[in-house]
Write a protein that binds this DNA or RNA. Structure first.
Length: 588
DNA sequence: TCAGAGTGCGCC
DNA sequence: AAACGGCGCACGCTGA
């Protein structure tokens, strides 16, 4: 595609409004930016390109042009759909430049992911344009220097083309969305986009002094455990040698505790027949050798340090003083969001770690989450009568399962019984086999079950929840390469979907749909309270809000999360727990 | 020597 | 026939 002579390069403010007047009549415009870097808080927009049907592409040089009221009016207009590719980036860059762009949006990257979800395809503009339009884009100028005083004609051509191509791309992707009946999923994603951008843009505040306290605590713990383990775990089998070395430590090769290979060997030498060193296997021998527990503790301390405690500080943005994680709005094949750098969805869920995340002075956090969302979704999707009735009656589902598998009345179920039931519920609903349940219950819930017992539990469980069993059978018989959630969102496979994935996807995926719908309902009303979503962890939403508005905001969050949930849960009550907190650690 | 698969584990 | 799923990240190890 040659866009030469098909763009207007605008370098002074007077020209800008003249050319924008035509744009204002359109209801669909494509937007792209070229920036001096990737950070909306510290980098700048050099070029803002606007393209619409039958008009030359406008390339606005923001180093030479003032932002006019008309430009703002267009970008903030609720009558004009703005097409972006990876809009979460451009939107934040515009906000960073003080330009209040707002929906409606069409994001060609999100659209591309939606139509080919799960196949592991690339969704860069270059690849998407080739896949859907058969057009080869030349991206050689993409990483060129956009700060130079005089841009080259190659740079301007490139800038124009990237915006221009979004128009046919939108048409093609809209057609495919319609053909695949993905309109509902599209609306959820595009509606959620602003909230996702706000989350990333706003960031989270970290209690840095407390981080350092925790870092020191775990460094010392790790050091202590490391010394003890290195002393006791040896790689060379000295027990068989006839002569002992004078100074054993000088002969020994010091063990690397981060090498599972070496650790396995060392424990084998001590008579612990490990076949693997993951915590499932280690937990078998935990009472047999005290070094097992020490090693588990070492791993945890090491993990906490290398992944979180030693890493978080470097993510604090110099301009905002906050942590801005990278959001991938459709980051998982199921439709879930993922975030990275840092992985804020994987911060250890204990008071020490979660209390590191705090509101600004004068603000509170609203920590809200869906109660047992996945199990409720399963009840909705499989339609099992017993499960449905239990939720409708407000019964505790883990206690119910405990009574089923232990053959005792509900009112005689103890806390211990309930603890046994949790891994049974979480495992069996997704098709876990008895053998795995044994390991899963021991390793994650400290519950000891024998193989035979697990088989009986499984049998009783499915006898009592026949709708669930029927649902599993139905999925097994389907042998399909495509699975949908109730919103219509799809996940594709290039081969018949494995049973366990086919079971999990509509559940995990609908949870994502519901949370994203909640975000799309929430972000605008939150603005009125100067409140903002700052974290999403699949079924949990964290909002930062001025203290004065905390109560109304909490009520609003609960109401809209429930509304989102009830949109899809038609037979099962949707329960949201929410609390006003001084850190992420507190819960409802 | 270096990319990449493998192991392991944090969260939901 | 058999199977709980989805992520991001660290790091020792392998093989070209």
């Amino acid at each position: 595609m040659n866009s030469k002579n098909n763009y207007i390069y605008i370098v002074n403010t007077l020209d800008l409004d003249t050319h924008l007047e035509n744009v204002a009549f359109h209801n669909l415009i494509a937007i792209d930016t070229e920036t001096t870097g990737l950070c909306p808080h510290t980098n700048k927009i050099r070029l803002l390109q606007i393209s619409c049907e039958s008009e030359p592409t406008l390339i606005i040089d923001l180093f030479k042009t003032e932002v006019t009221d008309l430009l703002i009016k267009i970008l903030a207009s609720e009558h004009i759909t703005k097409i972006f590719h990876n809009g979460i980036f451009d939107i934040q860059m515009l906000w960073g430049a003080g330009i209040p762009v707002s929906p409606p949006y069409f994001d060609t990257q999100l659209a591309s992911i939606l139509v080919d979800n799960g196949l592991g395809l690339t969704h860069s503009l270059k690849v998407v344009t080739h896949r859907h339009l058969g057009i080869e884009l030349d991206k050689t100028e993409q990483d060129s220097n956009w700060s130079v005083p005089k841009l080259t004609s190659e740079q301007l051509d490139y800038a124009a083309e990237d915006a221009l191509v979004l128009l046919p791309l939108e048409r093609e992707l809209s057609k495919k969305i319609k053909n695949l009946k993905l309109e509902r999923a599209r609306d959820i994603e595009f509606g959620c986009l602003t909230g996702a951008a706000m989350l990333e843009f706003k960031g989270m505040k970290l209690d840095l002094p407390q981080l350092k306290v925790l870092q020191k605590e775990y460094s010392e713990l790790k050091k202590k455990l490391k010394a003890e383990l290195e002393n006791s775990l040896q790689l060379d089998d000295v027990s068989n040698s006839t002569t002992l070395p004078l100074f054993p430590s000088e002969y020994k090769t010091k063990i690397n505790l981060n090498s599972h290979h070496q650790v396995k060997k060392a424990f084998n030498l001590l008579g612990v027949p490990l076949t693997s060193t993951d915590k499932d296997h280690l937990s078998i021998y935990i009472g047999q050798n005290e070094l097992i527990q020490k090693f588990v503790d070492y791993r945890k301390a090491n993990d906490y340090l290398t992944k979180y405690l030693n890493k978080l500080e470097r993510f604090i943005n110099p301009k905002t003083g906050r942590i801005h994680t990278s959001v991938f709005q459709i980051g998982a094949a199921t439709g879930r969001m993922s975030v990275r750098n840092p992985p804020l969805q994987q911060i250890p869920n204990n008071t020490k770690f979660r209390s590191l995340f705090v509101p600004e002075e004068g603000y509170d956090l609203i920590v809200a989450d869906y109660s047992q969302m996945e199990l409720r979704i399963i009840a909705e999707v499989c339609g099992d009568e017993t499960l449905t009735l239990a939720y409708q009656q407000g019964l505790d589902i883990h206690s119910l399962t405990a009574s089923v598998i232990l053959d005792k009345p509900l009112d005689q179920v103890t806390k211990e019984d309930r603890r046994l039931a949790k891994p049974v519920n979480f495992g069996l609903v997704y098709g876990m086999m008895p053998a795995s349940l044994v390991v899963y219950a021991r390793s994650n819930y400290g519950v000891a079950i024998a193989q035979k017992e697990a088989e009986e539990i499984s049998a009783k469980f499915f006898k009592r929840f026949p709708g669930l069993l029927e649902w599993h059978k139905q999925i097994k018989s389907q042998n399909t390469k495509i699975v949908r959630t109730l919103s219509g969102r799809i996940r594709k496979w290039s081969y018949p979907a494995p049973f366990t994935e086919a079971v999990n996807t509509p559940v995990q995926g609908l949870n994502a749909d519901i949370t994203k719908l909640a975000v799309s309902l929430l972000w605008a009303p939150l603005i009125k309270y100067d409140a903002c979503i700052i974290a999403l962890v699949h079924d949990e939403i964290v909002v930062e809000v001025p203290h004065a508005h905390a109560v109304e905001t909490r009520n609003l969050v609960v109401e809209l999360m429930q509304q989102a949930g009830s949109t899809f849960l038609r037979h099962i009550p949707c329960v949201v727990d929410a609390a006003i907190c001084k850190s992420w650690a507190e819960k409802a």
